[in-house]
Amino acid sequence: MDQNDITLNQLQNEVNDWIQTIGVRYFSELTNLAILVEEVGELSRLMARKYGDQSFKSGESAEQIPSEIGDILFVLTCLANQMGISMQDVIKSTIQKNTKRDLNRHKNNPKL
């Protein structure tokens, strides 16, 4: 791991520190869920233009995609922090669940 890389635990701490010092406080969980959906919609709009059939509007570009992914990760981290959920723990659990469920599923999929 590069020394500039951060763990998910460090990410959660960094976002929490930002909220406490700059953001004043967390928005409510419901507000953050609405913001998360909004950010996913913004990413979807850009993806539809880059990879789908729509063209970019004035002022939009595919170069905004990383920023939208960052916004999604930030708000998702806020939600995890608010609910006392360790992102490190849940991603490990999710990978284990998916591995058990899909161990041979994708290998045996003729569509892939």
Rank of each mutant, 00 (worst) to 15 (best):
Q3T: 10
Q3W: 05
Q3D: 10
N4T: 06
N4M: 05
N4K: 09
T7Y: 03
T7P: 00
N9D: 13
Q10C: 04
Q10W: 02
Q10F: 03
Q10V: 05
L11M: 14
Q12T: 09
Q12I: 09
N13Y: 08
N13P: 01
E14S: 12
E14Y: 11
E14V: 05
V15Q: 06
N16D: 15
N16I: 06
N16V: 05
G23P: 03
G23R: 12
V24E: 11
R25H: 15
R25C: 11
Y26G: 09
Y26N: 12
Y26H: 14
E29S: 12
E29T: 12
L30R: 12
L30K: 12
L30W: 08
T31C: 07
L33N: 09
I35Q: 14
I35H: 14
L36T: 09
V37F: 09
E38W: 10
E38I: 09
E39L: 02
E39C: 03
V40P: 01
V40C: 13
G41Y: 06
E42H: 05
E42Y: 03
S44F: 06
L46A: 00
L46P: 00
M47I: 05
R49S: 07
R49G: 01
K50I: 01
K50Y: 01
Y51R: 03
G52H: 04
D53Y: 07
Q54E: 10
Q54A: 07
S55I: 08
K57C: 01
S58R: 10
S58L: 04
G59I: 02
S61C: 07
S61K: 06
I65F: 00
P66W: 01
P66G: 02
P66S: 04
S67K: 14
I69L: 15
I69K: 00
D71H: 12
D71F: 03
I72W: 02
L73F: 13
L73G: 13
V75P: 15
V75W: 13
V75Q: 14
L76A: 15
L76V: 03
L76E: 11
L76M: 13
T77H: 09
L79C: 05
A80R: 14
N81G: 06
M83T: 07
G84Q: 10
G84M: 11
G84R: 10
I85M: 08
I85T: 08
I85S: 05
M87D: 02
